[in-house]
Amino acid sequence: MTGRVRGRTGADDVDLRRPSARVVRRVVRDPQAWVGGVVLLLVVVWALVGPWLRPWDTTYADVTAFGVPPSPEHWFGTNDIGQDLYQQVLVGLRKSLMIGLVAGPLATLVAAVVGAVAGLVGGWVDRLLLAGVDLMLVIPSLFLLILLSPVLTRGGWPTLAVGIALLSWMVVARVVRAQTRTLRERGFVRAARFSGASTWRVVRRHVWPNLASLLVIDATVAVGAAVLAEATLSYFGLGVQVPDVSLGTLLASGSPSVATRPWLFVFPAAVLVVTVTAVSLLGSALRDGLDPGGPDA
């Protein structure tokens, strides 16, 4: 979001340089952004280096410790077959983050393409795409994910991530469409279109740069939503499948014994909640910073 990118989009945007600097300044001064950003960074770093902090291996089963509570040997305790839960949570966290990082931006990309094309082209293309969005909103996406789970699980976690993405872009596509319609009447977009630029070129060069902040925010929020969707599907046995481990599968295997061995459920749940809270705090801080009516910094 540098001044140069803004400047290229046309005369109308000359003034936008200062507001964008103001956005950055506001976000940097927002404690929400700091808390969210730092916690998220810690979570990601922990997911990457965490396995080397402890001696246990993910496949190793400690035959002297079946289902023991958290202790100096096993920080998060062990499960019924003696696997170290700390290592299990890390493996699950990595998978959940990967699914979120694939599905979130992908959902935003679909929303950005559909919304921008519908808003820019208008006419029957707009009506058709909007009807498609309406249609996909009729059946709640979790219902469709459950229905499609036999197909989605066949390809392992990547197809699951793509499936989650393809069922969660509709509301944002509407927002992008509405924003694009107001952009369409602005001078630089009209000039580009009348001088013969293709729709795709206008979308890439003029619409997306002007909606960049909205799209970045949405991609952030969508990562959290995808992680939650994965956890819910896996909890009901319809998401990540054995031998893969995600936070959702850990919650699924931990919940039956939650009354007697709570650590098996509470640790994966806490890691999940902390991660998604950090993501949404960051998204919220970005949104507050962008809000022209928000407090000035």
Binding site: G224, L228, A231, T232, Y235, L251, S255, V258, A259, P262, F265, A269, L272, V273, V274, T275, V276, T277, V279, S280, L281, S284
Partner: peptide, 17 residues
């Protein structure tokens, strides 16, 4: 924020606990 970051089934299981 915290509740929205918690999947509904986790809320349910924690209430049961």
């Amino acid at each position: 924020f915290v509740v929205l970051a918690t999947p509904p089934f986790v809320v349910a299981v924690l209430l049961m606990l």
